[in-house]
Amino acid sequence: MRDEEIATLQAILADQAARPGALLPILHQVQHAFGFIPKDAVPQIALALNLTRAEVHGVVTFYADFRQTPPARKVIKLCRAEACQARDSDATAARLEQGLGVTLGAASADGSLALEPIYCLGLCASGPAALVNETPVARLTGERLERLIAEALA
């Protein structure tokens, strides 16, 4: 990690380490700051919380949302839960894979674009739903879906 990254991490740790159950809030803030949980951040988080690297690693790897590698420039997380499936998210998924040239759960070869499954965004009434770089989008069919693909490829 570079010096300014270490400073960012240490600021998060200084702010959060004393609170009860600090590990998850810290991991969220680290991911927010870096886009993922850098491998080298884990020993520092462990030290601040009097945990081992193994324990922090166990938590990081348990939650699908915590990344261990930098994210793609654009990440589309398509809801694959039951309500969206009922609104034919299967077709949305197939169109996205085809349109973006990326399979669900993978990233494009140049790392610019990733398509990931996610399970329920609470937008069940207006599915199929997705998050595009953390911004919710809904009713992903037809023209809206095509626009999303075009923007993603732009």
Partner: peptide, 17 residues
């Protein structure tokens, strides 16, 4: 020093990271 890394079927015993 050990943890279970990952979840579900992917779970593995992991020393350190």
């Amino acid at each position: 020093a050990l943890t279970i890394a990952g979840r579900g079927f992917g779970s593995r015993v992991s020393p350190g990271q």
